[in-house]
Amino acid sequence: MRIIVPIKQVPETNAVRMDEETGTMIREGVEAIINPLDLYAIEIAIRMRDEHGGEVVVISMGPPKAVKALREAIAMGCDSAVLISDKAFAGADTWATSYVLAGAIKRIGGYDLIICGERATDGDTGQVGPGIASFLELPVASYIGKVDSVAEKSCRVHRLVETGYEVLEVDLPAVLTVVKEIADPRLPTLRGKQKARKMDIPTWAGGDLKVEPDKLGLNGSPTRVVKIHKPTVARNCQKVAAADEQAVEQAVDQLVAFLQGKDLM
């Protein structure tokens, strides 16, 4: 089977610092990594290939430096990769991103499954997976926590919802978006890294895809970010110190009185 895994390169958000004045992200010194959930998508794709044969193709839309993310995916065990990069793609919202990714997936063709992360840590919308499915006229099963079985024409999966797990049977080809419990991602191997270094990774631009120029990037995006600001949080905290046993008693009494005053006990 042919499995396509779209991956996104994101800033390491744990290390993100914000420019207090402008409200924008300070990108210098922030490492670019594979979106963490996409590692889980790669892992389950590799496992399915190892069990059922076939190949895993990773693709990423992004600037030229996103090729690093693709090489990491190859080092983990994916078979081939395509970078989708064009200045015209810049500023794409999820509509325009899904449009280009769907265009690239059509060009690859012959796929049985497309596996995305449920969401990326930076844009954080979770809309691209279902968006790709919609453009390709495929069914989508989101929030997948477990793949139970894969047959020639369908697969059975567990979908995490608010009240438990739905068990779904999904006709192939289809799009899945996965959550963490799907599988523990492996680390790249030394041999994988060597392979990744040598691998020839093609870049496809807008002209290589069957896409309409006016539907690309910022121009093709219905949404516009009009303002970015820092979240502000402030309440008037009545703070008491409780450094020794006696102070603890007092502080607790004050707290209980405070709660009683608010009718919270």
């Binding site: 993100v16 992200m25 516009r224």
Partner: peptide, 11 residues
């Protein structure tokens, strides 16, 4: 967005 570090207003 961006791990809750910012709030974005979108139109």
């Amino acid at each position: 967005a961006i791990g809750g570090n910012i709030l974005a207003t979108i139109k």
